[in-house]
Design a protein around this nucleic acid. Structure first.
Lengths: 247, 247
DNA sequence: CTCCTTAATTCATATATGTGAATATAATTC
DNA sequence: GAATTATATTCACATATATGAATTAAGGAG
């Protein structure tokens, strides 16, 4: 059994995350199909505990308490604490930006980013969600997750073109997986951001489940010319992180 | 009226943020004085929505959903959106790294970081928490918050030495405050990171409450030689940000 | 400034949750 | 590996929440 009002608290936070400017009570109720009066009591409770803030115009937004909680969530993520120093090492070896992400509801969520000083302009930020089909990390999930899971995800997502290189046909995408599995890492060739080339490898836990993915991202010319060196370092790092997680 | 189960969801998140290793159902219930069966239903609801994760040993921790939500909370923080362009300007003028932080339960939480291209190595990252007594931003809070609040915080924290310069005696720390108040900004002289010198000024809202602090951080030699110039620019920026917040 | 529109609160009752005790399951000890 | 202990889960009734309708407050138009 699930607790209705508890679920609604989560729904409200989840809704407001997509409205940086905030939403008024009425709209929150409408978008979640809640009676206004129900939404009222919930929002009041959340507001009084700093989970929500209210602007002068009675627009509700995510509050400062959630900054704290969210940061802790990031810090306590097992894979993250284990991985941080290793990701930093990897960055120093390959001299490109490193990302790590976990899977959430058919999308990936960045949980770590180690910037290279030769700063590449990538829009990705910690906490951000991105689709799976057009990112190195996402393709790593699709290729290395159990096929049933991967197929299920692929069959339920919409593959829009982001760049000229974005693969929009699930069959074409799946055709890449055997190679990814053979080499141990996935490739994103400007499929999400023009000019950006990524190698991404899976991370496993003690149960042998894929729990995260790590990637090296950089300008295509710079990365593809050092492809095999980067791949080697990436695979080494991802393997060590998996081991630290009991794999 | 406040919704009981909604409040409890918040209590549970808030509790778990202090237990990075997670807590089992029983302890969550005990620490919050909830009946186990009540805690059970709530946790089940939260777990099924990825707000909590469960380790193999049935220890519950903050889940990935909260990473996402917390990150958005950070991005939508008013003071942050208002301040961003001004912080960037400040960085370009003083050519050092700029930070902004808010106060949360006796610690500071970084909400903005504008890197200078002559990149200083600072460990501070957005979303990260740091103690107040040993950082420029923290000392700004302690010096410019109402004395009752400041004293209360100081009396409840443990002042460990981080560097050779860290002030570990509350009385010594408090002795600096009158000067900070007179000049309008606080100073951190390698008290948190060796080699790092900081100037930090308070930001106020329309109600005259201190809501944030901004700092300029850089190598000691480079910053202290331009001390008065940097102080002037910092004070100008912090004042403008306060004004944008209605001060 | 007043009327009109829209959104936020309040209220009373139908309905869902909260809870102590019982049960099942997992972990630990011997 | 069996017995024991501790913890998680289920259950049914007492209690708190959820909700549609009514009310109040706020916002906008003329």
């Amino acid at each position: 059994m699930s607790v209705k009002s508890a679920g609604r608290v989560i729904d409200i936070m989840n809704l407001l995350k997509d409205y940086p400017g905030g939403l008024p009570l009425k709209e929150i109720a409408a978008k979640l199909s809640l009676p206004q009066s129900s939404a009222f009591h919930l929002i009041q409770t959340m507001h009084s505990r700093q989970v929500l803030t209210m602007t002068e115009r009675k627009q509700y937004k995510l509050g400062p308490k959630l900054i704290q909680i969210g940061t802790r969530a990031l810090e306590t993520l097992d894979v993250n604490t284990e991985a941080q120093p290793l990701l930093r090492e990897l960055m120093e070896k390959v001299e490109e930006t490193i990302f790590m992400a976990v899977l959430m509801e058919k999308e990936l969520v960045y949980v770590a980013k180690v910037d290279n000083y030769r700063s590449v302009r990538t829009s990705a930020q910690i906490g951000m969600r991105k689709p799976l089909y057009c990112t190195g990390l996402g393709k790593a999930f699709l290729a290395f997750l159990p096929e049933a899971v991967s197929d299920n995800i692929l069959s339920s997502i919409n593959m829009e073109a982001i760049t000229n290189n974005t693969i929009t046909d699930p069959v074409v995408l799946q055709a890449q997986f055997p190679q990814f599995r053979a080499q141990g890492y996935a490739i994103d060739d400007e499929e999400n951001e023009t000019g950006l080339f990524c190698l991404a490898a899976p991370i496993y836990n003690a149960a042998g489940e894929m729990i995260a993915a790590v990637s090296v991202a950089g300008p295509k010319s710079r990365v593809s010319s050092r492809h095999s060196f980067i791949a080697e370092e990436l695979l080494h790092t991802s393997k060590v992180i998996s081991q630290r997680n009991g794999y």
